[in-house]
Structures are given as C-alpha cells and as structure tokens.
Design a protein around this nucleic acid. Sequence first.
RNA 1: CGGGGCGUGGUGCAGGGGUAGCACGCCACUUUUGGGAAGUGGAGGUCGGCGGUUCAAAUCCGCCCGCCCCGACCA
Length: 598
Amino acid sequence: MRVSNLFGTTRRSVPGDDLASHQFLLRAGFLQQLATGLYSLLPLGWRTEQKIRAILREEMNAIGGQELFMPVVQPADIWQKSGRWNSIDQVLLRFQDRRGRDMALALSHEEVVADLTAANVSSYRDLPRIVYQIQTKFRDEARARGGLLRTREFSMKDAYSLDRDQAGLQSAYVAHFRAYFKIAARAGIPVAAVLSDVGVMGGHLAHEFIYLNDAGEDTLVFCDTCGYAANQEVAETQLPEPETEKEGELEEVATPGAVTVAELSAFLKVDPSRVAKSVAFMAEVERGQPARMVLALVPGPAEVNLARLRSATGAVELRPATSDEIVRAGGVPGYMSPRGLAAEAATVVVDETLGRRRNLVTGANREGWHLRNFNIARDCQQVKITRLAAAENGDPCSNCGSPLRIRRGIEYGNIFQLGTDYSTSLGALYDDEAGEQQPVVMGSYGIGVGRLFACIAEEHHDERGLTLPLAVAPFAVALISVGQEEAVGQLAEASYQQLCDAGIEVLFDDRVASPGVKFADADLRGMPLRITVSPRSLQAGGAEFKRRLGEARIVARKSILEEVKAELEDLRRQEVDRVQTQMAPVEALIAQTFTGGA
RNA sequence: CGGGGCGUGGUGCAGGGGUAGCACGCCACUUUUGGGAAGUGGAGGUCGGCGGUUCAAAUCCGCCCGCCCCGACCA
C-alpha cells in the first residue's frame, strides 16, 4: 500500500484527555468516532483488527471450536424464554419491526445458541461441541467511555461449549482458560485471570481475563502468597475471630462536626475499623415498585460491595440514597445509624466482620452525637448479617491469610460456566445412553475484540506513537523515500515491488513530503520495521533499516529483500519465544486453579 | 439519571451586541528535502438547531440536540 493512496490521514492533534494509546490510535488514523460509543475502523485499524481476529480464530480452532455466524437482530421470544427480556433493562436495545413484533439487538448470543442446539443436538453422540463466532454486539450503555474500552457497538469473539455433564463443561472451561492465556501472549499483552461475578449471565463459576493497568475500570484483588485472584466484587477475605471483650454500656457521646469516618475516629481516638459506618441506599426490589431504603453497615475504611448488597436484598436496582430520602426515613445524614430508626423505615444489612466485633462506634441518629459500645447482636434488632464489605488493600486472604493487594485492570475477556439454565428454558435437550432426556450443559466464553485492541495499544506505545508487535501491526514494513532524487525513487520503487512480490506487507510512503513528516508518521503508526531510502543511505551503499524499537543500520541494495526476511523472521521468533515464556507458568496455574475447586 | 464542561472552515482553537479570525491541513506555482520546510497566490464557515430580546445576535435569554469529563450504572 502506498501512503499516497491510503484512505485515512494522520493528525497532529486530537481533543480530549483519553488514554495516550487511544489518542495515538486516533492520530495515526486507525479509528474514527462516529457518535458516543460508536467507532469506525479505518483501513489501518481494520488490518490490525483482522490480525487480532486471526489469532482468536486460530486459538479457538485449536481447541476444537467451529466457527458459525448468528444474527444480531433477534426476536423477543427467545429472550422472553430465557427470562432476560425482563431481567435486563436498558442495556438491551429493543425495537419493533414493521409488523409490530418485538425485537432486540443481541448483547450476547446464549439464546440463539441454545435454540440452535435444540434443533441440532438430540443425542449424547452429538456432544461435546464448541461453537463460536466473531460478531457485533450492541449494548446500550448508560455511559460509553474510554475510547474502545467501553463502546456501545463492538465486536466480540463469543464461544459456547455444549456438554452432557459438568465434567465435560469443566474440561471445555479449562481449555478456554488455557486458550485465553495463549491469545493474550500472542497479542503481546500480559494477562491475569481472576474469579468474577456471574452477573446477568447466570451460572456458577466465572473468570475474567484482565490486562493490569491503572487506567482500568475494574478493581482486582490479588494474593501474592497463594495466588488467589478475584474481582473485588466477589473477593473473599478472612473473617476476624469473634471478639470476646466484655460488652460495655451503650452511651451517647458528643461529636460535634465529626461527620466522616476519618474525623470521627480522630475525634474519639479509635481505629477507623471500629466504626460501624452506615451507608444508605435505595433499593428497587421489583421493577417499577417504589424503592425501599437499605442501610448497609460496614467497617469505617471499607466500601460497600454492591454486588453483595444486591444479592443480600434481592434488589434489581440499587442506588445511593439522597439526603432528602435519609431525612424522610427518619435518619440524620452524617450521624446515620440503625439505632433509633423505625424498623419499617429501612432494611438493615450488616457486614459480618462487624458482627464479630464488640463495642463499636456508630451514629446516634442525632445531629452531633455518636454512640459508643455499640454491639450488633445486642443493640440491633431485625438485621441481616452477611459479607458486605469489599476487600481492601491489606485485608487477609481467605485462603492463606496473607495481606491482599488491590490493583486496577481492564477486563477484555471472560468465561462462564452457565450450566443448564439456557438449555432448559429453550429446550436444548439430548438423550443419554439410557434414553433419558437431559439438558445440555453450557459454557460461554467472550473476548471483546476492540478492548483487546485497546489493551494492545496501551501496552505497546511510546512517546512518539504506537510500537505494535509484528503479529498485529497493520503492515510489517514502513518504507520511506527521502527527497526527489531519481536514484532514490528508483531504489524505493524497486524495493517496494520486490517486497510486495515476496508477499511482505509494506506501507510505502511515496509522498512528496519532508523527511520529518514521513518519519513522524511512521513512528506514529508503529510498524515494526522501517526502511529508509535517501541520498544519504545510497551514499552508504543502500537502504537504512531501523526497527521501531531499535537502532539503525545500512543494508546493501542487493540484499534488501533477504535482510527484510531475516528481520521479520527474527521478530517472529522473538514473539514466539515471548509466547512460550508467557505460557510457561500457565499449566501450573491451571492445576492450582482447578484442583479441588469448582 | 445527577453534577460539570464544550459545540465557530477538514483538524485544533481564539473571539463574546455592529466587516468571522489564527494555526495546521487542503489547492496552484517556485525554492527546498534525514525528524512535523519557506515564499507567493488561492479555496473553504447558514458560528449545533429552533424560538425570543434588539435598529443590529456567533455574542444576551429560553428550549432542544450533540459531544466530553466525574458519579450512578455495567458480560
């Protein structure tokens, strides 16, 4: 491809304060935004996308996946059968066709797979199977953000395993677990697998595949000692031993102006963890029903884990209460507590850690006053005690007690053990050897292609632009001619032809432009190998070779082709080595993750 | 959905009641050619939309739309 013929231009500047990598993708002419959460991939971006897709296909095929293709526009009835028509709200985009039939844009394809399975699987002899596709999904996100990280329309590689029993599912799950590490390694990003919430997918066991990065939206919990890794939403921590200290007498203490946990603990000179913090939420238990107040009590430094609060209360909708709502329920903002609050005013849920502590500090529900020697069992009636606090940095690992570490990351893939919910509701049954009908046991396995793309760009850029691995770079070689000298033009053209003929992907900057512009654009686009033909290089005997992340050297004009081949072969070998290195610990990890568990 | 910000040539921005500007890009010619060249000449904008105030609105007011950020939300 000649730059003079390329659709899409580089830009000197773009607005916004996105991730640096996303700005480079925009500036290099890989992407262009159409509207919130909707992006076009320009030719350069599309080439990279296709290389990522090729890796996905190869690794899915390698575990026995069969590619197919399912509609994005789907009739409501399969979503009604699975129950998700009602259980998912606004992210599922609904509309009607001309006949007034309810339709939806697929945000995932479990229903269709179950429907296909019902029609195509009838015997245990038809199992196991793995099918997958790379297809558009649409999720009408409340707020798209972060460039490619959270878009509304996006491509996903989604795979589905069909098995006759849990043992079969388990082995498909492990195969995907391994394949996802391989994909990350080939795409050139580090990856961590963490236990995750099953969310609206339903099912039992789930893992997320995370690219660790401070800009990520997800909060992960790691134990460096035993290897425990989980999304904060589901991370377990060790409970403290129940305290046996004598219960003191409940007393009010004046705490003027001490509204936050920090102020309060400083004022009363108690450890913040001994403060029972009350956080008020409004919970909608059934869609459309009036919200009820839920008071969550957690240790002072802790955050409320919304996933747990949701499951503890059965809420479908959960949001922080406003001051007005707190007052209306009879609470005093800043001094809130379950004490002195009418039982019918709010549901109270207490973190189990607090249940094991004695003589805590909590609000008095009176402006300027708190309570001392507060003991849950004695001083609160009608409370539900459960795990509620999100794991914090330094909390003891539930496995081994070592301090946990909190990190941020970007989730680009996930795997779910779905079980039989979808197959049962959509009639995906098979006959076993005894002729008994059984539901097919399903798993579902997604990778967001755009997110993976974004993660790759984030991992591979420097101050000048992208530095993509050969495996995903839109072109292997950036060829640049400098100046208008005839000899330069001749060698550049000849090299371009020669390389193209050899099947090497070359982006030839044949424009009449100053060298600075060409070098800057080549750096921005990030092709792994740059070849410059210039009066200076001719003087030195040929062309200049420079890796995007390496030093320049002169190559004789007669050996350009073979040297390019050697360079690319070397880059390829480095990437293979890197994949091997990255995969080395994975088997041990799999053994550790799946023995005795799940 | 709450809070904040921004919509002005292709891109990035300034202007803030009276002639619509700058830089980059683009077109033509000339000179240049190893890190985003120089000169000369040119093209390109119903100032997001609708309504209002005014002799006069890009500018003031109202409503709407779009985009961005924070939060809520989130396979």
